[in-house]
Design a protein around this nucleic acid. Structure first.
Lengths: 188, 188
DNA sequence: TCCTTCTATGCAACTCGTTGCATAGACAAG
DNA sequence: CTTGTCTATGCAACGAGTTGCATAGAAGGA
């Protein structure tokens, strides 16, 4: 249950509501983990019941009240325990790769539009990451690196950037292959 | 339910038993999709019930009998339908990245061993992929590329190779960052 | 003979994750 | 004053995926 741990990390970086967490999971944390708001609310409830988190009702002006969550002592201990326990290297789940191999039993050229769409999505994500890097780490207005947290956030972001660049290059390779197969003749 | 489609592709490439599929999912198909044997058996049963697959009892010598599955007409149609339907670009689930950000609230240097272990696992996987590429595609004994299926399998494998290379380089970056933080002094 | 390993299949229980739906306060535009 | 959008929270149902357990044939070694 790594979502628990992702929530603990995010709340240690900054306490917030379920709604705010859901938005973070679309952004920075979402570089390497995704979660819907329903899932987040459910897990938050369970973690409070288990004593890992604290809740505080916060009245707001101009918007509905919210519940602000923060990490309790046992939550921090649970995170530390997880950090010291080895985990398995993750394995990929890449639908598009399944499609590419499946295309051998259909029309490979019909996949070109789909692959180009994915390529564009990865280009957009890369641009978004690079803008975030400039804003938070390498740009003129970025805060000077002072604490370990910032260094670590940056190296994770660099991982996201490297992943997107690699994926775009691979999709170019895929497109070249599909075009070659198309030129060689459908049904060859 | 992309496991269904991964199974259809694998069985179109070559019919086989649940056990054989489980082993393929630890190898070639497993480059981009994973599944345990329990999940595979369950899905196979459902797909036969839905008329997507055919089963055939096969008696064997020197080992227990098996059930060989192959793709039925409706299965092929279902795969074609999925191939023509756009899918969402996938998002990552990277536990190690969560740990790296979480290390800011613990001892970053304590993560070094774990990261090195992952790096080694990725080096092993890369070596395995490269050996497979040499054997099946680029080596002197590899069959000449004749059909689209081989080209497509190769481009997917190249994706796996690119992913492992990128990951190893990133983990080197992570290790350098962790060492730098360690040198800067614990608790800085 | 017993133990282990490999092949081969499967059930049951559980947790994780997704989808659809529902509610509600605050504000802005038409 | 209705509609739409953004903030904010949540339930219910379902499907996907994991974990633990169980069985059994065949082979080889201690």
């Amino acid at each position: 249950m790594a979502l628990d741990h992702a929530i603990l990390v995010s709340l240690l970086e900054k306490p917030g509501s379920g709604y705010e967490l859901a938005r973070r999971f679309e952004r920075s944390i979402g570089y390497f983990w995704t979660a819907t708001h329903q899932q987040i609310y459910r897990v938050l409830g369970r973690m409070v019941a288990d004593g890992l988190l604290l809740v505080r009702e916060v009245e707001q002006q101009g918007r509905p009240d919210k519940k602000e969550y923060s990490v309790a002592g046992p939550g921090r201990a649970a995170l530390a325990a997880w950090l010291h326990k080895p985990i398995e290297p993750e394995s990929l789940r890449h639908d598009l790769a399944v499609k590419i191999r499946g295309a051998a039993f259909d029309d490979p050229a019909a996949l070109i539009d789909e692959v180009e769409r994915h390529r564009q999505a990865h280009r957009d994500r890369l641009a978004h990451y690079l803008a975030g890097e400039l804003r938070d780490f390498t740009g003129p207005d970025a805060p000077a690196p002072q604490d370990a947290g910032q260094e670590l956030q940056h190296v994770v972001l660099r991982g996201g950037i490297a992943y997107e660049r690699m994926t775009i290059a691979w999709l170019d390779d895929v497109l070249a292959t599909l075009h070659r197969l198309e030129a060689a003749g459908p049904g060859a």
